[in-house]
Every structure is written in structure tokens, then in C-alpha cells.
Computed example of a mutant assay.
Amino acid sequence: MAENGCGSTSCSSGSCEGCASNKPESLLEQPGIYTDVKKVIGVVSGKGGVGKSLVTSSLAVLLNKMGYRTGILDADITGPSIPKMFGVRGPAKGTEEGILPEIAEDSTKIMSVNLLLEDEEAPVIWRGPVIANMVKQFWTDVMWGDLDFLFVDMPPGTGDVPLTVFQSIPVDGIIIVTSPQDLVRMIVNKAYNMASAMNIPVLGIVENYSYVKCPDCDKEIKIFGESRIDEIAAGLGTEVLGKMPIDPKFAELADAGEFYKTENIYLDKAVEKLKGML
């Protein structure tokens, strides 16, 4: 009898389940020789408009101020906002070895499709496979150098790009961003379940728009009603890493291209969680 892939001369359908030859081939892409990233963190949301880029940028800035080397891979190809927030503009430069990321005032390294377009306001009207391939190239062709953390700012939902990122880039964990609205349970569950299906650890949840502080009495006004994020997180076996209010200062600094000046005190728990991963 011919020898099979397990090195055995006989093999039943049940005994072959653990064979190395039956394991799916890894789709992970290798970074370039000029990239050495310790931890890749995805920032995801089940829907748009919840402040995912705000959380991504805040985490990069906070860790950068603590002496960690940070970068942001802007995977939201059709709605890129990271370059504007940090005041960086293209065109990105390249060499025979690869593409150089743009570097913000605080030394955060950034790559986004807006840095490759002649007109940063031009719409990106590409089909899914083209967009997904661009995201892969941001990992394989960009010379990120030595980074402690590379944050991947994902587009909303569970479509082509998040799937490509989870399959192609060695993501060490994700942070889910949401808001205190009635549909939050379903939205968080979608993102959580996708990560679980792809065997990506869920580090925790950040709630944005939790409240707004009255400028006169400092009272917290919960515009979207009472939050249930603690209950939802507990049900999923994860934790809440921060609750961010609506703060006009964040928007002002983002619009001015000076987001690196922010002092986001609401994500301390998330920062400690990330520091503990190194």
C-alpha cells in the first residue's frame, strides 16, 4: 500500500484530520526586510461613524508619548482620514526596496492611500479585490522600520478588507470600537464573531460618544441613553478598555492636522493592556 502524507501505510478519513498535509496553507504575507514590527493591532467597528480612526490615532499618540515607536496603516481605503488628522501629505516616496511611510510631527509613521493620490480629495472608486490588494501592499511593500506597535485602522463592517487583513497580516489582537446605541449588541457581536472565526484575539471594547460634559456644571449628559457596554462585554468574555465622551477638542485638533497634541485620558486601560503585550 502506498505511503500517505502522514507517513503511515493506512489512513482512515477520521485519522487524517490532524495530518499536516490536510492543514490549510497559511495566507500570511511576509513583511519586507526593512520592517520589524513587534505587535500589530487592528482597530475595528461593526458600523461606520463610531470614531474608529479617533481611537486608532489616540492609541498611537498615547504610546508614542510614552516612548514606544508607533505606526498607523490606514486600511480604510475609501474613507481615509489618518493623514489629515496628523497633518501629513503625499506623495509618499519610494525606493527600489519599497515605499517610505510619511512621518508625523510626533514621529508616528503613517501610510494611507491618500498619500499615493495626486488629489487627496479624489474618490477611490475601486472594486473589492483591488482595495484588498492595496492593503496587503501596505504591509509587504512599505518600509516601516522598527516599530513597537503598528495600528491598522480598518474600514467598518466585515467585508473584503477586514478579511484580507486578518488572513494576510499577523494581527496580534483587535480592539472593537462602538457607541451607546440600541443596535450596539448586534454591531459588537458581528465584529467579535468575525475575529473569533479568524482566530484573532479580541483585546477589548472602547465605547465612544459615551456622554458629553456640560461646560457649566461638568455634569455628564448621556445623549444616546444609558450604556450597556459593560453587560455586552461581560457576555462575550472580554472587557471594556475605555469610555470616551464627545470632546470638541479632539475634532478641533484633527481638523487642524495636529491630533498628535491630544491628551486622551480616557484610554489609559487600553494603553496598559497594549503595553502588557510586549
Rank of each mutant, 00 (worst) to 15 (best):
C6Y: 11
S12W: 06
G18A: 13
N22P: 02
I41M: 00
G46N: 09
K47P: 03
G48K: 01
V55S: 03
V61Y: 05
V61G: 01
Y68E: 11
T70K: 02
G87S: 03
G87N: 03
R89T: 15
G98D: 10
P101R: 00
A104Q: 05
E105A: 14
E105Q: 13
K109Q: 10
V113R: 04
L115K: 00
E118A: 13
P123Q: 09
V124H: 09
V124Q: 08
V130H: 07
A132I: 03
K136W: 05
K136L: 06
K136Y: 04
Q137R: 02
T140V: 05
V142F: 05
D148V: 01
F149A: 02
L150R: 00
D153W: 10
V161S: 01
P162F: 05
S168P: 00
S168E: 13
I174V: 15
V177N: 05
T178W: 07
S179E: 15
L183V: 15
K190C: 10
A195W: 10
S196M: 15
S196A: 14
M198Y: 14
M198S: 09
N199K: 15
N199P: 04
I200M: 04
L203G: 04
L203F: 12
G204A: 03
S210D: 13
S210Y: 07
Y211M: 06
C217S: 06
E226S: 12
S227Q: 07
R228E: 15
A233I: 08
T238S: 03
T238K: 02
G242D: 12
F250V: 08
L253G: 02
L253P: 00
A254Q: 13
E258V: 07
Y260E: 11
Y260R: 09
E263Q: 13
I265Y: 12
A270G: 03
K273A: 08
K273L: 10
K275I: 12
L278K: 06
